[in-house]
Amino acid sequence: MEKEPEKILETKYNQAVQTIKTAILQSQYQAIKLINKEQLTLYYGIGRYISQNSRIVFWGTGAIAYISNRLQIELPGLRGFSERNLKNMRTFYEEWQLLENNSAVTVAELNEEVTGIPQIRQLQLPNFNSFPIEEFFQIGFTHHTAILSQVKNIEERCFYIKICATELLKVDTLKKLMKEDLYHKQGSLPNNFMAKLSSAELAQRAIMAFKDEYMLDFINVEELGARDLEDVDERIVENKIVQNIKSFIMTFGRDFSFIGNQFRIEALGHTHIIDLLFFNRELSSLVAIELKTGPFKVAYLGQLNMYLRLLDDFVRKPNENPSIGIILCKSADKAYVEYAVRDYDKPMGVSTYKTASDMPERLRNALPDIEELKKLL
């Protein structure tokens, strides 16, 4: 396609400025302060307009930068319409245009006002049974941009949209979860939740609440003077967790409240001690964690099952759901655990964990040693 003269391009750019400016003012008129849904629909419409003119019609390489600068001049104090953000709007449209009933709208099909300036059509979503429309509008544009930049599969995108909306995640937390590949890890820990919890909905929430593996990078076995984690007493590791309880809860997930370690239950003439006890608000359940420094053993399930029975009978409140147990050990054969856990009547699962010493050698070598850090401090 032959490039158009510079003057003609500038005229088109100015028309684009007026078109986007009109859409912004109309949106602000509908909602004095841009609420999330209004903002997303506006950004989607602008993204469509920019995409159709920059992909289908030749605008030139400097078009978006020019439009952004002119918008700042014509609407002083305007935020969110930098060159980068305008490109993000284009991506937002192009990645989600499948949501529209008619996504093949061309520039010529846009309704024109009396002024001759085309209107920007905003997002109109169809009624998809499986698409989380409500959650889609609940999360911010920055969250959407982060998801689109790292996730290509639509089911995976919907997963992160839902978790952002329900757990009110910050963008940094969202990026961390995507980096950890939560989508593929969630629900993969061996458990008996579906069979032992009172409803499928509660069981699904329980599955979502726990991971199959946790990175407890605040535990450094070498600093404890051991060559291998199995050489370390479980109470030492437990104390490390308690000392770093905030980090542990942030690693474990949202909605966990720490009740205590070495939690004692006096019942039937015997004393029982649970390593770590939490309460999860989302599940409305007590969560008992038994910490093991070695590989999984079947005997751990019987011990945990007894603890859960005691919690339900002597600790749990009437309005709470059944207590849930997690064995947190160094390694486990998932198929073996799945087979073994079926015969126990209390809801429980088995997760594994890694410590700082489990990091790949190339990453550990890239870190300064403890003495160097002390000198820097």
Rank of each mutant, 00 (worst) to 15 (best):
I117Y: 13
A146D: 02
I370A: 08
N192M: 09
V105R: 14
M1N: 12
E266C: 04
L367D: 06
I370P: 00
K354I: 12
K246G: 03
K3N: 10
Y353M: 06
L189Y: 04
S68I: 15
I67S: 03
A104G: 07
H270C: 10
D233Q: 14
G60E: 01
N280I: 07
V171E: 15
Y307E: 04
F256D: 02
Y29R: 15
L42P: 00
M178D: 02
K152S: 09
V232T: 07
E4W: 06
T106P: 01
Q122T: 14
K330A: 09
K7M: 08
S188H: 12
Q303A: 01
V17A: 03
A267N: 08
V237H: 03
G269R: 04
G349W: 05
Q39H: 08
I50Q: 12
N153V: 13
T142M: 07
N220V: 03
Y300I: 05
A65D: 09
R316L: 13
I241F: 03
D345V: 09
D217N: 13
K37E: 13
I163H: 02
Q30D: 08
R55H: 12
I241Q: 01
I139E: 00
G225W: 09
A299Y: 12
N244V: 07
M215S: 12
E234G: 02
V341W: 04
K375A: 07
N129R: 15
D333G: 06
V287W: 05
D358P: 00
V114W: 10
D181G: 06
N129Y: 10
T355V: 07
E38V: 11
L34M: 07
T145Q: 14
M1H: 08
R254K: 15
A195G: 05
Q52S: 07
F159G: 00
E234Q: 09
N88V: 09
I163D: 01
K175T: 12
A209P: 00
G45T: 01
D345W: 09
G116K: 09
K152N: 12
W59P: 06
N365L: 14
V337A: 00
R121P: 00
L283N: 00
E112V: 13
G294H: 15
F193Q: 05
R84K: 14
I370W: 10
A226N: 01
A23H: 09
